[in-house]
Simulated assay, not measured.
Amino acid sequence: MSKKIGILGGTFDPIHNGHIYIAYEAKRLLDLDEIIFMPSGNPPHKDEKNITDSHLRYKMVDLAIRSYDGFITSDYEVSKQGLSYTYETLMHLKVNLKGSELYFITGADCLMDLEKWKNVNLIMDNCNFVVFNRPGYTKEKLYAEKRFVEQKYNKKIIFLDLLQLDISSTWIRQRIREGHTVDFFIPDEVSKIIRENRLYL
């Protein structure tokens, strides 16, 4: 029987409890066997000068998810040379996880920007595309975009209506810069790495 594997990508700079909640709920609701957390190496849409070293981000993710059953961290994008494109990652996983059914899990903001991504047709061909709601997007707007993408690529998109935790890595970095505690929003292991490496100050 083939495995059902979720992929949750992102810069995870830093990973926070919102990411873990999304992964947990996606695994439960979609009856997935595993969730692969995929910290990005050099994402094409972000200025890499402002991104924390990829190996530190990987370490934060790895420690944050260690106690959750079926959560694993991949260093594929972190170890890869050059830019990280979603379609390449999915094609790589498709070959290396033969027979597995892949579920690519992403937020509403990515659905709205999907037409700017590279080789969207290859993304859609190599996974089940899963979108969760995020603050700032009405359901009407999301469903309209979902219908547009489904018709254009002739693929179904799975929508997860999750509790909207308005936590972002950007906001966490800002709180740290301003000298406020973020311990309620990130796992203890992540907090420790941030302090030891004096990140985001």
Rank of each mutant, 00 (worst) to 15 (best):
K3R: 12
K3G: 01
K4G: 01
I5P: 07
G6Y: 13
L8Q: 04
G9Q: 07
D13W: 10
N17H: 09
N17I: 10
G18R: 08
G18I: 04
I22P: 06
Y24C: 00
Y24L: 05
D33K: 03
F37W: 07
M38H: 10
P43D: 12
E48D: 11
K49A: 09
I51G: 09
T52Q: 09
T52G: 08
S54Q: 13
H55K: 14
K59S: 08
M60F: 05
V61F: 05
S67D: 15
S67G: 01
S67I: 01
D69E: 13
D75R: 11
Y76I: 10
S79V: 00
S79Y: 03
T86C: 02
T89S: 14
T89A: 10
H92S: 07
N96Y: 10
N96A: 00
K98G: 11
Y103E: 02
Y103T: 02
F104N: 04
T106K: 06
G107H: 11
A108F: 13
D109I: 06
C110T: 09
E115G: 05
K116N: 14
W117P: 04
W117I: 05
W117Q: 08
K118Q: 12
N119S: 14
V120H: 14
N121P: 01
N121H: 15
L122P: 03
I123W: 13
M124F: 11
N126D: 07
F129L: 15
V130L: 04
V130D: 07
N133S: 10
R134H: 10
Y137T: 06
T138I: 03
K141I: 09
E145C: 02
R147Y: 15
F148S: 10
Q151P: 00
K156S: 13
K156Y: 09
L162M: 10
L162I: 06
L165G: 04
L165N: 09
L165D: 05
T170P: 04
W171C: 00
R173Y: 08
Q174H: 13
I176E: 07
R177P: 01
E178F: 04
T181M: 01
V182T: 11
V182I: 12
D183R: 13
F184C: 00
K192M: 06
R195A: 07
E196N: 11
